[in-house]
């Protein structure tokens, strides 16, 4: 599969702060990649470099095989971008800004498509931008992004101001774009959204990529939440090496299990009569929290 976004050993420093350090990841054609990490991890810096707004210190960054800095204008014809904090011109109306954004991509406005999106997002384009809430400003950028075909969509926390219904609309629009063969890089804090949409995730922390791969792959690296009941008491379950965060609640044993030790657990349980056994696959949130906690721990 063709690689559309390619980031290789990307480094960027602002003065003494190393914002990105040897970051590498890629997005292939037709793929949607979730880009997650705590605030200040470097997500937005990476995205701004991808858009040619700031210049990388080191490393190779390409979209469509073209250098994002040198060929920025060429690349932008086929890229749609939605920032998390949408800043608009207070004296222009939402409708005007949508058209303006499209004209900035050199695209003639497809009225029907624009009006269709305005309806779906339940947006009032006749108001001046100064009157819009954060969510409405985001809708302006989202409508402008979806109103014309693009090969690559770059979203930087695009739904942080939207209500759940409109989040749904965003997810539908993104899926439609994917069906048409577009690729998406989605930076988000809403992990359920990333989980629902994304094939792959890239987790970034303090300017480093700490995890990258398909969600399935990543789940293997993590733990499963197990809750079970047995007729007999289970001696020393909490002392097993593959059991973590053990506690009991209403006679239920609840603990985290290293994903690759499921077999060991079953072997351990063999002699006992199990009356209830539930396992929950790890949520992206757990994955994320693990990295986040280690950040706080200063690792």
């Amino acid at each position: 599969m063709e690689t559309l976004i390619k980031v290789e050993n990307l480094s960027k420093a602002f003065g003494k702060t190393q914002a990105l350090d040897q970051v590498s990841f890629e997005v292939r054609k037709g793929e949607i990649v979730g880009f997650i990490g705590p605030n200040g991890a470097g997500k937005s810096t990476a995205i701004r470099i991808l858009l040619g707004l700031i210049k990388a210190d080191k490393g190779r960054v390409e979209i469509f095989g073209q250098d994002v800095w040198k060929e920025a204008v060429d690349i932008h014809r086929r890229v749609a971008y939605v920032p998390g904090d949408v800043n608009l011109w207070p004296n222009l109306t939402g409708g005007e800004v949508i058209d303006l954004f499209l004209s900035l991509r050199g695209i003639a406005v497809d009225r029907k498509r624009k009006e269709d999106l305005i309806r779906r997002f339940e947006f009032d384009p006749t108001k001046k931008c100064r009157a819009y809430s954060k969510g409405n400003r985001q809708k302006v950028a989202l409508i402008a992004a979806f109103a014309a075909k693009a090969d690559v969509y770059i979203f930087d926390e695009p739904t942080s101001g939207l209500d759940p219904l409109q989040e749904q609309v965003f997810q539908e629009c993104t899926k439609e774009a994917l069906e048409k063969g577009a690729s998406v890089l989605l930076s988000s804090h809403i992990l359920s959204e990333v989980e629902k949409l994304c094939d792959k995730v890239v987790i970034i922390r303090q300017g480093n990529i700490v995890e990258a791969g398909s969600l399935d792959d990543l789940r293997h690296l993590t733990r499963v939440l197990i809750s079970l009941k047995t007729v007999e008491a289970l001696p020393d379950l909490d002392k097993q090496p593959f059991v973590h965060d053990f506690h009991m609640k209403k006679g239920e044993y609840i603990f985290q299990l290293d994903s690759d030790h499921l077999n060991d657990l079953l072997a351990y349980l063999q002699p006992f009569t199990v009356t209830q056994f539930e396992s929950a696959p790890p949520k992206l949130e757990d994955l994320f929290m693990r990295h986040y906690e280690s950040t706080r721990g200063g690792v």
Binding site: L51, L53, V73, H76, V79, P83, N87, R105, A141
Partner: peptide, 13 residues
């Protein structure tokens, strides 16, 4: 006011 980036992110040089 971070509006210039929207303009530069377009296909105008």
């Amino acid at each position: 006011k971070q509006r210039l980036e929207s303009v530069v992110a377009g296909n105008r040089s």
